[in-house]
Write a protein that binds this DNA or RNA. Structure first.
Length: 417
RNA sequence: GGGGAGAUACCCGAGUGGCCAAAGGGGACUGACUGUAAAUCAGUUGCGGAAUGCUUCCGAGGUUCGAAUCCUCGUCUCCCCA
């Protein structure tokens, strides 16, 4: 059954190198080239597996790293198999968690999975993407089959895992059902006959368990392709929506651009590698110019522009760049300033109190905050700094005026009659 | 089934009768600096047209001149033993 796969050619190795761009690890080491050779010798596309937790879907650059990698395989004619872990979500993946995950309700899972599929199409090619729910096969297993499957893995093997080991050591509870998680994920690989499984390093145990189980069940073990987790804009934690350090792929070009420009210089290499298709040699050359004294801002602009281009197109990227320069470098006003309405009941005998102006336009959360912003010198009206919290402005002066709060919040005032 | 610990602002967390609108840290916001950032430094961070003003410390009652702090009941969380 496990006939030795064909020897990879130089061309395979070359392709594998490109596919391994940005990867953190590949197990076994030359597994990608080997799979490419296998695909060619058997004249069939590879099946690349990616398991997704149907929790909160949020397609941001971090998630896009993995999706773009999948797309790369698709471009070579391979088949992507997305597994929505609706059944495993009932267990709750213990990976990287110090506590038991809450179980999701069936409705939550359904709703999340639906949004996933629509979002995936933004990066993946639909006709080379198969979306499967693992309840399809896991739900069919009866207790005897589960027991039999479970017999293929030992408790010691499972407990070896860091998460469990740590929790045991810290006397945190580990529920029995959590021990079944790796087994379930491994069985997914068997069910869909995966050639390659992608995931983060936090998935090491689960993915390698898939290899073991496949071998046990007479299949050729999958190659594991580990992609790093993209560090978010804060430079500290992995990019995630809940941490607020993310860049969504559907954001407005200027927002995307601005967010990317706020990256720390030291994160540029990581973002170039994982979020763009710029050849690595070119990246090195660009980063090299910075070392020689070039303004890192310009290299970062290039980075931001490349990324915006991928999702919003070349024109939008160029526009975002120009706009950003206008605002930040030339210190000019943005070309589009959101309008804010000033309701008539905020006006008293032809005058508006500054604090009211700030709260009513949403620039300050309350009078106290408005006062603070004024006192701290963070408020400008038509380029004139305002600092007096008791100031009453005539309506004529406010109509159509540009209100700026802090470095980047603008509003054009529209007085409602 | 038995025993114990706890719930404080966006988050973590100190406070155990008045000196508490509540320490400290994180985060966020503002300013300075800059290369745009990061880093650093400084300030702010319940509401309030500001006042010896108002509403807060899981919820509901109570004790007291006075409660985040004490008591009762309730809700929820965690730990230990079985």
């Amino acid at each position: 059954m496990t006939s030795s796969p064909a020897e990879p050619s130089d061309a395979h190795k070359e392709l594998a190198k490109a596919l391994e761009r940005g990867a953190q690890a590949v197990v076994p080491e030359h597994g990608i080239a080997a799979k490419l050779a296998l695909a060619e010798s058997r004249n069939r596309p590879l099946r690349i597996k990616l398991g997704l937790d149907p929790t909160a879907p949020d397609i941001h650059l971090g998630f896009a790293v993995v999706l773009r990698k999948l797309r790369q395989f698709q471009n070579l004619g391979h088949q992507v198999v997305i597994i929505i872990g609706d059944y495993t979500a009932l267990i709750g993946d213990p990976s990287g968690r110090s506590a038991t995950r809450p179980m999701l309700s069936a409705q939550e899972i359904q709703a999340n999975a639906a949004t996933y599929t629509s979002q995936l199409s933004q990066i993946l090619e639909a006709n080379r993407t198969e979306v499967r729910f693992n309840s399809e096969w896991l739900g069919k297993l009866d207790f005897a089959s589960v027991v039999q499957l479970a017999s293929r893995m030992t408790v010691a093997q499972v407990l070896q895992r860091e998460d469990f080991a740590n929790r045991m050591a810290a006397r945190q509870p580990v529920s029995l059902h959590e021990l079944l998680y790796p087994l379930a994920q491994a069985y997914d690989s068997v069910a869909i006959e995966a050639d390659i499984e992608m995931g983060g390093l936090d998935q090491t145990f689960n993915i390698l368990a898939g290899r073991d189980l496949q071998r046990e069940m007479g299949q050729e073990p999958q190659t594991a392709l580990f992609m790093p987790l993209l560090v978010g804009l804060d430079g500290q934690k992995k990019m995630s929506k809940s941490l607020g350090n993310y860049v969504g792929i559907a954001e407005k070009p200027l927002d995307m651009f601005s967010k990317l420009m706020s990256l720390a210089d030291t994160q540029m290499r990581e973002y170039f590698t994982l979020c763009t298709d710029i050849p690595l040699e070119e990246m090195e050359q660009l980063l090299g110019t910075v070392a020689q004294g070039a303004n890192p801002r310009d290299v970062k602009r290039r980075l931001a522009r490349e990324i915006v281009k991928i999702y919003q197109g070349d024109a939008a990227a160029a526009e975002a760049d120009a706009e950003w320069m206008r605002i930040h470098s030339a210190g000019e006003l943005p070309s589009e300033i959101p309008a804010a309405e000033l309701p008539s009941d905020a006006v008293r005998s032809g005058r508006v109190w500054v604090c009211r102006l700030l709260t009513v336009t949403g620039m300050a959360g309350g009078t106290g905050e408005a006062r603070r912003l004024l006192e701290q010198g963070g408020v400008e009206l038509n380029g004139k700094k305002l600092t007096d919290a008791s100031l009453e402005l005539p309506v004529e002066e406010v109509q159509n005026a540009v209100l700026r709060v802090g470095a980047r919040r603008y509003a054009r005032i529209e007085v409602k009659q």
